[in-house]
């Protein structure tokens, strides 16, 4: 049984965590692509920025002596997400809207988003330094261990409190997004605009409003994802820059512009990464008893070495782009 628990801890839980973060990021990327037709490269840094906003709020609360039964990083999320949404609107107004107004091509906007990436990174490091911070200096990070001895296992399934929040909040965010996209006038207008921009204009849809709503959603989801990532590991200035490509991989796997595809793509890439570096020999060890004498399983049976974990996402990205650039869920709605 220990093998199974090892698998649950290493693959199922890790994959779900990673997948949640990728999914939340990829939804933002895919919405922006659907509405504004460009690959928003600065999305990773909007996540980092969102995490820093949360961190500042937590530091304020700690300074005021506030304590709560839930992690403070989760408590401040609504406010942090609102601030991040405003920042996202500001970035659009300051850097992308003028280029759009001039009728620039998508590639120009992509380059501009790289410029924004650099500015955010520079600013964060300028003010926060390059060091690593933790949300859990003032409070403890609870770890839940589920005793599995009743199944004859000696190991526990272990999951931390932020990880539970992360999976739960991702589910909530996805459900809310679904309700928004299929049940509200603005959500439907958003899908309509992603479907056919010219017809949306002709129908009298307020496209400027839809663009603003897109940034609000993308910005707040980026803040959510970034804060969760920082709660799970630590907060550092290059927190999300390194995962912006896996996020793009998730969005492209799901088909750029398709929100549900992006969520599925996020989990797909997340699980692919954890499965690829998972050492199968740990699970298959019982087979050693069955194998003929003199035979034994190699110590390491991982598909790719651990140092190539992120590379798995890049390979998925490139292969999907080459083989099926419209994503693997062709035909799925929005």
């Amino acid at each position: 049984m220990n093998e199974l628990i090892f698998f649950i801890n290493k693959v199922l839980i890790s994959g779900a965590i990673l997948g949640s973060i990728y999914a939340l990021g990829a939804v933002g990327v895919t919405l922006i692509f659907g509405i504004l037709r460009f690959a928003h490269f600065a999305h990773g840094d909007m996540m980092t920025l969102g995490a820093f906003v949360s961190y500042i709020l937590v530091t304020l609360l700690v300074a005021m002596g506030v304590t709560a039964p839930i992690p403070l990083g989760i408590l401040v999320l609504p406010v942090a997400m609102a601030i991040a949404a405003v920042i996202a609107l500001g970035i659009d107004k300051g850097f992308y809207a003028p280029l759009r107004a001039r009728g620039s091509k998508p590639v120009v906007l992509l380059i501009a988003s790289i410029g924004v990436t650099l500015m955010i990174q520079g600013l964060i490091r300028l003010f926060a330094g390059v060091g690593t911070r933790s949300f859990f200096d003032a409070e403890a990070k609870d770890i839940f261990r589920i005793d599995m001895s009743w199944l004859g296992a000696t190991r526990d399934i272990s999951i931390t409190e932020p990880q539970i929040w992360m999976i739960g909040l991702t589910v909530v965010a996805v459900i809310l997004l679904h309700i928004f996209l299929t049940g509200t006038r603005l959500g439907k207008a958003m899908r309509a605009m992603a479907d056919n921009m010219d017809l949306a204009l002709v129908s009298g849809i307020n496209t400027a409003l839809v663009v603003r709503v897109t940034w609000v959603i993308a910005g707040s989801l980026a803040c959510l994802a970034g804060t969760m990532l920082a709660l799970d590991v630590t907060l550092k200035p290059d927190l999300a820059f390194n995962i912006v490509l896996p996020i793009f991989a998730a969005a492209i796997v799901g088909g750029l512009g398709q929100s549900y595809g992006a969520i599925a793509g996020g989990y797909l890439v997340g699980f692919a990464e954890t499965l690829a570096v998972f050492n199968w020999s740990a699970v298959l060890r019982p087979l050693n008893d069955v194998l003929p004498a003199g035979w034994s399983l190699p110590q390491n049976l991982a598909l790719v070495p651990t140092e190539y974990k992120l590379t798995v996402a890049f390979v998925i990205l490139v292969v999907v782009l080459l083989v099926r650039p419209t994503g693997i869920f062709r035909g799925a709605s929005t």
Binding site: R191, D195, N196, D198, L199, A200, V202
Partner: peptide
């Protein structure tokens, strides 16, 4: 318009709703 005059990924009723957006 002559071409591309429906939102293909939206349902018929959603298409009509979009006409009433204003």
């Amino acid at each position: 318009p002559q071409e591309h005059n429906v939102f293909t990924s939206l349902s018929v009723s959603e298409n009509l709703e979009m006409g009433a957006f204003t």
